[in-house]
Design a binder for these strands. Structure first.
Lengths: 224, 224
DNA sequence: TTCACGTCTGAATTATTGTTCACTTCTTGA
DNA sequence: TCAAGAAGTGAACAATAATTCAGACGTGAA
């Protein structure tokens, strides 16, 4: 054996792998999942099409990993926001707001991750992604229930419904009509978060307070 | 000119057209949108592949019309249920329940209509379908608001969120885990309808009553 | 420098389906 | 029965992208 992987090479390989993933992510953010095609992604990553296959066995694997990545980032953000909140109800509000803000600030990417048509099967990965976020939110709802702030309920079903509401209202195909100008972004986040909190049983007045609390410290919302 | 379309022929043509649409619908109901391929649909409809193109200019047109058809049926059901209700709040509850029941009884078809990946562009048709249902529900919310039963709100956004919640909870990829056995179907419809009503501001106690009212007269729910 | 082996390349291949069209079959009125 | 034209057929075609692979190029130890 005259050739061995040196540290330098390992690093370069890792960099390339991540360059490909980043290229895929950018493509998805700009043009949706339809734009995540091997050849264009390869061009973005400055490699040849064939090279992509040295790093990912198939397009399905590439997209699956992309979905997992984005999902991981979102989960981290949700946890950070929720953990910083003073109590279980505010934590829930913060979690919901975070999801909403994330969805809005990267609409195309979010839509791609969630539901946009893809020609390969990424069901499993999407399922895992949804499950993770639903699990996190369900946990927060559960905490609020245990604290006596909310009525007992099927937290998993509630979390699923809640996220469905957010996504449909903010990134679904009708989102553009409901949120027709950039100035309404913040309003939309507030409105939808309020709806979501009321849905799980937060009383109206209390919900309003929680929403304001959760939205205020959020990062600036940028237009679509 | 020795040949003219006689009534008999016109009828046969119409029948064939509808046979093709029905075939497409059945295919979608059984195997999702992915199963709606020209050749298999043609086989189901007992015609040759080429014949499909004498009735529909392209696959996109076929699927668009399928979506419009299903949507029209659903809309009719929603209107009928809501119009039969005694007041605006019950009408809203009835509308929501109807959507839920429809979604559940034809899960694959609903998923296909709403969001399943398709290789041709049916965005416009899906948009129209969503818009129609959202419009109907928004109208019912609005009526309840005008009757003083609900707080003032962006009814269109609320309706969008509400339908998103229903669909995600009942037909989305996580639905199977939340509703793991057929006996839970009715429960799920109730729970989700309750969530939806609370979301738009119906008080909890009142919401429970409305949900029971709306679910009871519904047709029997059949398993997935 | 050399050689053994890894990595990269990108044109060619493959696979899948929608779509076309030359031909056959059917329908109608004379 | 016949001719004119419509409707139906299905094998062939086209288009799109994922995937492969034979050869070019890099890399590391001797």
């Amino acid at each position: 054996m005259v050739y061995r992987r040196t540290h330098q090479v390992v690093k370069r390989l890792a960099a390339r792998r991540s360059a490909i993933l980043t290229a895929a992510r950018n493509a998805a953010a700009e043009g949706g999942m339809a734009a995540v095609q091997i050849a264009p992604v390869a061009v973005r990553a400055n490699v040849a099409a064939g090279t992509v296959y040295r790093y990912f066995p198939s397009k399905a694997d590439l997209i699956s990993e992309l979905i997992a990545d984005v999902s991981r980032d979102e989960l981290t953000a949700i946890r950070r926001a929720a953990d910083a909140a003073p109590g279980p109800s505010s934590a829930l509000a913060a979690a919901v707001t975070t999801v909403a803000v994330h969805a809005l600030s990267q609409r195309k990417l979010t839509w791609g991750i969630l539901a946009e048509p893809v020609d390969v099967d990424v069901t499993a990965s999407r399922l895992a992604s949804r499950r993770a976020v639903v699990g996190e939110v369900a946990g927060r709802i559960d905490a609020a229930v245990r604290a006596g702030h909310l009525p007992a309920q099927d937290t998993s079903l509630a979390a699923t419904a809640l996220l469905g509401a957010l996504n449909e209202a903010l990134v679904g195909p009708l989102a553009a009509e409901n949120i027709d100008d950039p100035g309404k972004l913040r309003d939309a986040v507030q409105t939808v978060t309020l709806l979501a909190l009321r849905a799980v049983g937060v009383l109206d007045a209390r919900a309003r307070g929680l929403v304001v609390q959760a939205v205020l410290p959020g990062k600036t919302l940028v237009g679509a």
